[in-house]
């Protein structure tokens, strides 16, 4: 098992075969990526296929549950509805303003921006507060009860508060995302800190690290993997809540489109928007996973092991 020869350099032993092995690895990784994309497509196709089948057999009423080929086909027409940004302005009719594609892009960008900004703010605040709770005892006593008290409150309950405080625009939507994630993320941060191996902290202590150094150099890097996981979990929560927020106070955004679809009884538009949200959420998650692998290079690949069982 172990190479114990004190003179044999472990990397030197693996040296000569490295390039070939690396090339092989890159190839396999490339295939892996392709395989993943393939399975994703297959998964979606399967779901869409069942739906289409139901439609073909007449089980799904196209007026209520239009299958993908219907709600995706008239992109130009559906896209126009995304033009809520200018449509609310007096004097603009449906025919004017940006093209369908531009409308979709503007709306998508607005909603994505709110999710992103909300996530970043919630993350920074939650990690800051979580670390502070463990760092200062008084802060713990003062803050933690309130955080725990507020964390079961549904984001819906914050909606009026968001409107009272911020009126309409980006702010209430971002506020909703932050408030929906913040409390859970504080609790998650604290749980992560409490899970740090006391041995690692003791090592730092024996080397003369101050409290600040222990937090900065041991605790924060040690909780990073867990925090990225928490972030990924909360990413979907952010996408959920942003639609709720946008469906009320905000001038434009995907939530507005859903509301419009509801009010005008347009199931095609609902499903179209759902598809867009799904693709966006998937993309975000993919980016985060990529970042996770980059930043957390030291984590063991348990997934791989589980697959081998």
């Amino acid at each position: 098992m172990t190479v114990i020869d004190r003179n044999a350099a472990p990397s030197a032993a693996a040296g000569p075969s490295r390039p070939a092995a690396a090339r092989l690895l890159a190839m396999v990784a490339g295939w892996d990526w392709l395989a993943k994309a393939w399975w994703t497509c297959l998964s979606v196709a399967l779901f869409a296929g069942i739906w289409e089948l139901c439609w073909a057999l007449g089980w799904a009423d196209p007026q209520l549950l239009p299958p993908p080929h219907i709600f995706l086909s008239n992109f130009g027409e559906q896209g126009k509805f995304f033009n809520t940004a200018t449509r609310w302005q007096v004097g603009n009719s449906m025919g004017e303003g940006p093209s369908a594609f531009e409308s979709v892009m503007i709306t998508v960008a607005a909603t994505t921006m709110r999710v992103f900004v909300g996530l970043v703010i919630a993350c920074v605040l939650a990690i800051g507060v979580g670390v502070a709770v463990r760092y200062w005892h008084v802060f713990d006593k003062l803050v933690l009860p309130t955080v725990t008290l507020l964390s079961p409150v549904s984001p819906i309950a914050w909606l009026p508060v968001a409107i009272f405080l911020f009126g309409i625009g980006n702010a209430p939507a971002i506020f909703m995302v932050v408030v929906a994630l913040f409390f859970h993320m504080v609790l998650a941060t604290i749980a992560q800190i409490d899970g740090v191996s006391p041995n690692l902290i003791n090592v730092a202590r024996t080397m003369g690290a101050s409290k600040r150094q222990i937090y900065g150099r041991v605790i924060v890097p040690a909780i990073l993997p867990g925090m990225l996981q928490v972030l990924r979990m909360n990413l979907f929560g952010a996408w959920m809540v942003v639609l709720v927020a946008e469906s009320t106070g905000v001038g434009y955004g995907m939530g507005q489109v859903i509301m419009l679809a509801r009010n005008t009884f347009n199931p095609s538009l609902v499903f179209f928007t759902i598809a867009v949200v799904g693709v966006l959420g998937f993309g975000f998650d993919w980016l985060l996973r990529l970042a996770q692998r980059r930043i957390l290079y030291w984590l063991p690949d348990t997934q791989e092991k589980l697959r081998g069982l």
Partner: peptide, 13 residues
Amino acid sequence: RSLIFQETSLFPW
């Protein structure tokens, strides 16, 4: 006074 622990205690990052 350096202590070497019973379990590995290297910083994985």
